[in-house]
């Protein structure tokens, strides 16, 4: 009976930690996508310095989040976003044309990070 209780507890723990991990991903991805939207808005308003500072802070936050996320998310997906983030700062600095498209693509990638973890049928299969 002890083993049954242990196994039921184990399954419960896995379910709860899955839910918590998903929640953590959601919270962080919402934070990053919202901030990226802000950066995009600032960039459109030609407030480049502000956009750069915000992107810099966001990049630092992303690096912190990356460490935690690497426990549950495939490292390859995080690396893709990492390299995109690293590209964003110089693009804002030189006010490049592709900055906005890069921000959009980065935002989509981050959204997908959470989206791919939601237990919906198309993700499961």
């Amino acid at each position: 009976m002890k083993r049954i209780i242990l196994c039921a507890g184990l399954l419960l723990c896995i379910c709860i930690s899955s839910f918590l991990a998903l929640n953590m991903l959601k919270k962080n991805t919402v934070y990053f996508t919202n901030d990226l939207e802000d950066i995009s808005r600032l960039y459109q308003l030609e407030r480049y310095d502000e956009a750069y500072r915000k992107a810099d802070v966001l990049y630092t936050d992303w690096n912190k989040f990356c460490r935690t996320a690497s426990v549950i998310v495939d490292l390859d997906r995080l690396e893709e976003i990492n390299s995109s983030f690293a590209k964003l700062l110089p693009l804002i600095k030189i006010q490049a044309e592709e900055t906005e498209s890069e921000i959009k693509s980065l935002s989509k990638r981050i959204e997908r990070l959470y989206g791919a973890e939601i237990p919906l049928w198309y993700n499961v299969f």
């Binding site: 083993r3 049954i4 196994c7 184990l10 399954l11 896995i14 549950i72 390859d76």
Partner: peptide, 25 residues
């Protein structure tokens, strides 16, 4: 594959083991 988090190996192993015990019960 080191790019796969260890937890993605541990979770299914413990899920399977626990399911097996519960289904056995």
């Amino acid at each position: 594959d080191p790019s796969i988090p260890l937890i993605t190996g541990l979770v299914p192993i413990f899920t399977l083991a626990a399911l097996d015990v519960l289904v056995g019960f």
